[in-house]
């Protein structure tokens, strides 16, 4: 398992490559090959979080949106506005959509350092945990 410093360094490199490289698929393949070679596949989630943090420092806010149905343009615009209010210094906002029917309804917005979970499933889980 890589140390925090090694991960941070790797994340910085990946963030830089993402800015320069146009094809995300090729970049993803390169990253995957590296991780497999270095036996660091278990650190993937941590590395991705570090990449998001590195990009945020560079002014690029990447947000994962999870919904039960595909998002309309109006909702995406509202989410972008919300992110602008949250990160006024950011230069660029990248929205990654994920459709997961198991969230039932609502939206989950996840950035490198913050999360807004307004899905029905989260509320039901909270209710269950309360009792």
């Amino acid at each position: 398992m890589a140390t925090a410093t090694q991960r941070t360094e790797l994340a910085r490199v990946i963030a830089t490559m993402m800015q320069k490289q146009a094809s995300s698929k090729q970049l993803a393949r390169q990253i995957a090959a590296y991780l497999v070679q270095e036996h660091q596949t278990k650190d993937l989630d941590l590395i991705l979080r570090d990449v998001l943090t590195a990009r945020a420092r560079d002014g690029v806010i990447e947000a994962n949106l999870t919904t039960a149905f595909p998002l309309s343009a109006g909702v995406k615009a509202e989410v972008k506005q919300l992110l602008k209010n949250e990160y006024p210094a950011a230069k660029q906002f990248v929205l990654d959509e994920t459709v997961e029917p198991q969230v039932l309804s609502g939206i989950k917005v996840q950035t490198a350092d913050k999360q807004l979970d307004q899905t029905a499933q989260a509320k039901l889980d909270k209710l269950t945990r309360k009792f």
Partner: peptide, 14 residues
């Protein structure tokens, strides 16, 4: 809840 109602819900939440 369908896509339309979901969109309305999301807009209200935001």
């Amino acid at each position: 809840v369908d896509a339309k109602k979901d969109t309305q819900l999301i807009e209200r939440m935001l």
